[in-house]
Design a protein around this nucleic acid. Structure first.
Length: 201
DNA sequence: TCAGCGATTAACT
DNA sequence: GTTAATCGCTGAA
């Protein structure tokens, strides 16, 4: 299988890229355990013009520095003091764009993921939601700034195409504080998939 | 230096 | 439907 090339991540259309990530397969090889899942839910965060983004207004801090990197690295952020959120940095250097991975459908390393999540059987609770999927994949702050072309975390294209009538867009989750920007339809997910984080019936 | 808070989840009532 | 858990980052002092 082929890892997505750097050129894929350099696309400046972060919203379109968030949509195209649906159906791609994300892999992690952490602590010697290979795990992977098909991406079924994403959100776009568009740099300095997006109030919901950490980099809004051109803020550059030790934490957000990763978002300014060239596309193709991971941006991992600790939220609420207990949850890791996994983002894919996109766009050219100094353009702070990123795509938040909110839901994946488990594929390889299921046993490992179940152990990490302290579950004894497969359920949508395994990896539906940005905090829990990072936990299932073994992603933590050590992955922040890691290249997506390395051998610890990467994304492959398995040729999975989501039919356009199954791709749904809508407002992003948990960003009410962002004012008008909270209303933008920058969240994409696969209709009917049980590993989408929000009630999806 | 430090108070306040968040791109959430799970366990309650 | 409501709320506790929990800590690094941010911005102001």
């Amino acid at each position: 299988m082929v890892k997505l090339p750097v050129s894929y991540y350099l696309n400046e259309d972060v919203v379109g890229l968030a949509k195209s990530l649906l159906g791609k397969v994300i892999y992690t090889a952490i602590d010697g355990e290979l795990t992977s899942g098909v991406i079924v839910e994403t959100e776009a965060y568009n740099g300095h013009t997006d109030r919901a983004s950490h980099a809004f207004g051109g803020r550059l801090t030790p934490r957000t520095k990763t978002m300014y990197e060239n596309g193709g690295v991971a941006y991992v952020y600790l939220c609420y003091g207990m949850h890791h959120l996994l983002n894919v940095v996109t766009g050219p250097l100094n353009q702070p764009q990123a795509v938040l991975i909110r839901g994946v459908e488990p594929k390889d390393g299921l046993i490992t993921m179940l152990q990490r999540r302290k579950l004894d059987k497969l359920s949508s609770r395994l990896s539906a939601g940005p905090g829990v999927l990072a936990n299932a994949l073994g992603v933590d702050l050590n992955c922040n700034g890691k290249s997506l072309l390395g051998n610890e975390i990467w994304i492959e294209d398995h040729g999975i195409e989501i039919p356009s009538d199954l791709i749904v867009c809508g407002p992003r989750i948990g960003v009410d504080y962002a004012g008008e920007d909270a209303l933008l339809d920058w969240r994409f997910y696969v209709k009917g998939n049980q590993f989408v984080s929000k009630p999806n019936k």
